[in-house]
Amino acid sequence: MTWCKILGMKSSGNHAKVEVRDLDFYYGHFKALSDISLTIRQNEITALIGPSGCGKSTFLRCINRMNDTISGTRIVGEVLIDGKDIYQDGIDLADLRRRVGMVFQKPNPFPQSIFDNVAFGPRVLGQVNNRRRLKEVVEESLKAVALIDQVRDSLDESALNLSLGEQQRLCLARVLAVRPEIILMDEPCSALDPIDTLRIEELMLRLKNDYTIVIVTHNMQQAARVSDRTGLFWLGELVEFDITNNIFTRPQEQRTEDYISGRVG
């Protein structure tokens, strides 16, 4: 009996949404990622774990070319989304980052109203032209992150008045408003308490039906709870990548066993 059968998952999994092939990444002369190859599947949650500085956030930012904003960086290899290399010439970066949204460690709402925060993306990208449709998009996005009931009567109030957990859900709503395909989450719960953390996890499990999610987390238990597949990064290498149940019950690599058991260093 395999895990896949128990969980009702196909061993091959869903459609390969993101394929990374032989990826090296450099900050100047420092090689931060070495020979990374992995497949991120559609409608799954992929968790990336590993000690600080192992390259997992750097890897995450390769998927929407956020590293391009850092001078002196260089990439070798391929990152394909739906089979198309996002590092080839002529890629529309604004469109790429609409398709691949990102939520960060610390909630970072704009110092604007709740409504304007969520409406920001559709307005800038010109996705919505009339006020009524914009209101619908904002409300749908807030509903998708289970925030609408709390803020329905205070959409014009500052987003900064929300609690940290609510701010993080607002940031997620801001990403959803531009209808992305992939959501990258970089330590999205590290500033939140355990209950807000579980709320975000519950959201992720619901959202994966419509999106592909990649999460970087220091919290191994979170990776275990929420993800379908988990990858362990170590000193810029991908040590092991497998179905999450396998990683946490029968890892194949000693370094994975040591890391998830807390026997490191």
């Binding site: 895990w3 128990i6 969980l7 709870r225 149940n245």
Partner: peptide
């Protein structure tokens, strides 16, 4: 016997992943 192993494996996974 197989059902026993299935339940044991699923329980193991539940402890490891859902704490």
């Amino acid at each position: 016997n197989q059902l026993r192993f299935k339940i044991e494996e699923a329980s193991l996974a539940l402890i490891a992943t859902q704490q």
